[in-house]
Structure formats: structure tokens, C-alpha cells
Nucleic acid binder design. Structure first.
Lengths: 229, 229
DNA sequence: TTTTGGAATATGGTATACCAAAAACCTTGC
DNA sequence: GCAAGGTTTTTGGTATACCATATTCCAAAA
């Protein structure tokens, strides 16, 4: 049924609207708020013990991120994620990862390449040891380094947003037999392309890597079928 | 110097914040507000004869679109477009056009294909006649049809946002010798791939088309050098 | 019983008020 | 004249008040 929000804690020095935004965002991604459910400014504000203003601003941001939908003369409702939505998001990520990697190939510094090499090895190790959580964290770092080295703020922030969605989907750590080895090979292909500053090769390698991890995820997800159609 | 905003007209039945958003957005894209200039809520609200609230909401949306930057304890300032920004935006568009086209290949209907063929022909005609404005309009429609047929709301709306930026840059109609013929060939390559529902081919064709038009624009723009470095 | 008119309510949009923090400015002592 | 410190102003963040519209529900009349 309807989710109840706790009064907000004012400990943090950040802005209330940001706290509200995170809370609502997580509630939606964690499915504590069901799709179709209405978000009523006044109610949320009262439950959190704050005024409507920061709630409004948080909701506006959610609308921009398409996590909720504004229906005129109705209010905002939580928008559900269909399979098609997830596939679309994964496609976008694939596309932008390829882009950012091709850009990075022209800008990456030796220091960053060293770091990537080291991370790829660690990822492989941890993955091999079955330490999926750690391996995922390192994997995020791996991609983060590439993202940063491209110095493309728009692609960067967009990818990060997408990544948060995706990591919510994939929160259940998964592992497909043989995937760790593939990942190792794919990461090295990316590093190799970056080292040669070959942007086309980097693009191809990143795309292929993203597509494979996408495929691996979809197989898992739709076998598990924990996503509503 | 400082730009002065006129009192808002309440004729339209839409929301004030949307009017404010458009006004500010256009002012920035049309360079009526110079980069670095501060946007002060109270001032704008007074000039427009409205309260701060809708101005705030409009500014928040501008921040999300990166047209202005929020500097903590400083306020929001108009963010300038550097060459790097423009290149980044063009790259993103290229990447997403390729994506949406590859998706469209799996979903496009015969009716839409017919429409594309007819448009490609018209575009070529108008372009040949030197009627650049008309040709650009038709070109927009051409891409719009592809966008829609992909049924990918996120990519679609993102591309539209990007497109608005880009069309502001390219408002000065431009034409490169030989480009009309190339466009005709490229459009037909896209149509052909879509007809065969060959998503890889569609992706390649769209990417190549976007890259070429991007290249043509950059050559023009940076010869003209009407963009600040 | 059904329909219709209207009042009560719910809700979002906008305006205004208040507050804290930072910046700018002014005062005062040297 | 200049620097240090305090005071005023500016500005954004938040709270609250007000308003318009749409929905709901109830009552009265056909």
C-alpha cells in the first residue's frame, strides 16, 4: 500500500530538496513506491515534516528524469519500467559508452592507462574469486576512469545517471558462466585501443563490451523475470 | 549589457514557468544573455511582473539542460558554449541518431517508408533549387519520422532537445558545394537499410550521414568563426 | 430511483514572507 | 590614507498563504 515517509533529518548541510530527491528516487527505484501511485506534494511534505517547496523541486527533477510522469489535472504518478524501457536504457548506455570511449582514446593519459590495466587485473581476480560485489565496484571504477578521461561533461553526467538506474536493476549480483573471462578479454581490448589512441577501435571495443554485458544481464533478468512486462 | 525582460503576457493558458523557461532559453540561445552573466531570480521576476516561484522553476530546468550553471553561494550564470561544447553535442547527436535509426529498422512501417522516400526526393529538389530554408524544414521532418518510428521515448526527447540547440547554431542556412547530392545518396542509403530492416546497416548509414553533416557544419562554422573559443 | 446542481474538498500553481549566509559597504581607529 | 571590524544589503532556500480548477459527493427534484 501507500508508502509512508519518515521526517527528514537535517543533519546534512546540503539542501533539503536534494535529500528529498534522493529519497523519492530511491523509493521509486527500490519499488517502495509502486508504478501508477500518485505523489501528492502536500502529503509527502507533511510526512517528511517540511514544506511543499523542496518537495516540488524534487518532483520536478524526477519528472525530468522520467521516473514520474506529470499528468495534467491529475498530478504526478510513478512511472513503471517496462521491459522496453530497460532495453532502451541499456541501448542508450551502449551507444554512449562507445562514444565516450572513442573520445577518450584521443585524450587519455599514460597514468590513466596504468590505472585501467591494474583495475582490469583486479576485476578479473575478484570475479574469479566469486567476489561479485567487489568486482562490480572495481568495474564501476574502471568505467569511471574512462568516462573522466574523455572530458565530455554532458556524456559523462548522462552516463552516470543511466548507470545509477542500471545498477539498481542489476543490484542482484549475477554471474554467467564464462563471463569473467570474456570481461577480461574485452577490458584488455578496450585498453589496447585506448593505448594506441585508436578511437575507432576503442569505439568498437566499448560497444562490443557493453553489448555483451547487456546481453548477459538481459538473459539473467528475463529468466528471473522480476521485471513486470 | 544587462538584458531587460518585458512583463509576461498572460494570454496563453499554459503555465507561467513554461513561458519563463522559453523566454530565458531563447534569450540564452540567441545570445541576448551573454555567457557569464548572472541570472537573479528577484530581478527577473520583477521585470516580468511575476513572483519568484515560476522563475525558480524555469531556472532549475535551465540548470538541468546545462544552459546555466549554478555556482554555490554565487547564483546562476549563463554558461557559454565553447567549441568543445558544440563538438560534444554534435557527437552525442551522431551517436544517438545511429542508435535510433538502428532501432527504427526493426519497427518501421511501410507507410513511414513511403513518406521517407517522398521527403528525400523533395529535400533533394528544394536543396537543388537553393531553397535552403524549405529544405531544412523537410530534413527535420525526415528525421522526425525516423525518430518516431523507433518508439524510444528517451532517445526521442533527448534528440529533440539536442536538435533545438543545433538548429540554433545552424540557424544561418549553409550549403557546401556538392553536399545536396551527398545528402540525397545518404538519405537513400538510410531508407534502403530501413526497408530491409537491417539494423546494422541502418546504424552505419545514419552514423555516416550525421558525421558528414556534422563535418560540413563544423567547416562552415569555424571558417565563419562566429563562435567564441 | 435517477439525475442534476451545487457545495465541499483536493490539488497544483503562484505569490509572498521569512531566514541564513555571504558579499559589499561603511565606519572607526590607527 | 588605510586596515579591521562591524553593519547593511543581496540572494537563494524554505515556509506559508492564497487562488483557480477539477473532482467528488450529497441532496433535492423529476
Amino acid at each position: 500500500m501507500a508508502h509512508h515517509f519518515s521526517p527528514i533529518k537535517f543533519d546534512d548541510n546540503g539542501h533539503i530538496r536534494d535529500s528529498v530527491f534522493s529519497i523519492l528516487r530511491n523509493a521509486i527505484l527500490d519499488k517502495k513506491l509502486e508504478p501508477g501511485q500518485r505523489l501528492v506534494e502536500r502529503t509527502i511534505a507533511e510526512q517528511m515534516g517540511i514544506s511543499r517547496t523542496p518537495v516540488r523541486e524534487a518532483i520536478n527533477k524526477l519528472i525530468l528524469e522520467r521516473l514520474v510522469t506529470h499528468i495534467p489535472r491529475k498530478g504526478v504518478v510513478v512511472s513503471g519500467f517496462t521491459k522496453a524501457d530497460i532495453v532502451e536504457i541499456l541501448f542508450i548506455r551502449t551507444s554512449l559508452e562507445a562514444l565516450i570511449c572513442s573520445i577518450a582514446a584521443n585524450k587519455i593519459k599514460p597514468r590513466e592507462l596504468k590505472r585501467l590495466e591494474s583495475l582490469a587485473k583486479q576485476i578479473s581476480d575478484e570475479h574469479g574469486k566469486g567476489n561479485l560485489k567487489k568486482s562490480n565496484q572495481l568495474n564501476d571504477k574502471f568505467h569511471e576512469i574512462i568516462y573522466r578521461s574523455a572530458e565530455s561533461p554532458r556524456v559523462y553526467s548522462f552516463l552516470n545517471t543511466l548507470h545509477e538506474y542500471i545498477s539498481k536493476f542489476t543490484q542482484v549480483a549475477y554471474s554467467k558462466p564464462g563471463r569473467p573471462e570474456e570481461v577480461w578479454v574485452e577490458h584488455n581490448a578496450i585498453i589496447e585501443a585506448l593505448r594506441k589512441h585508436d578511437s575507432s577501435a576503442a569505439e568498437v571495443a566499448a560497444k562490443s563490451h557493453a553489448e555483451n554485458s547487456c546481453k548477459a544481464y538481459l538473459e539473467m533478468a528475463f529468466l528471473a523475470d522480476d521485471i513486470k512486462p
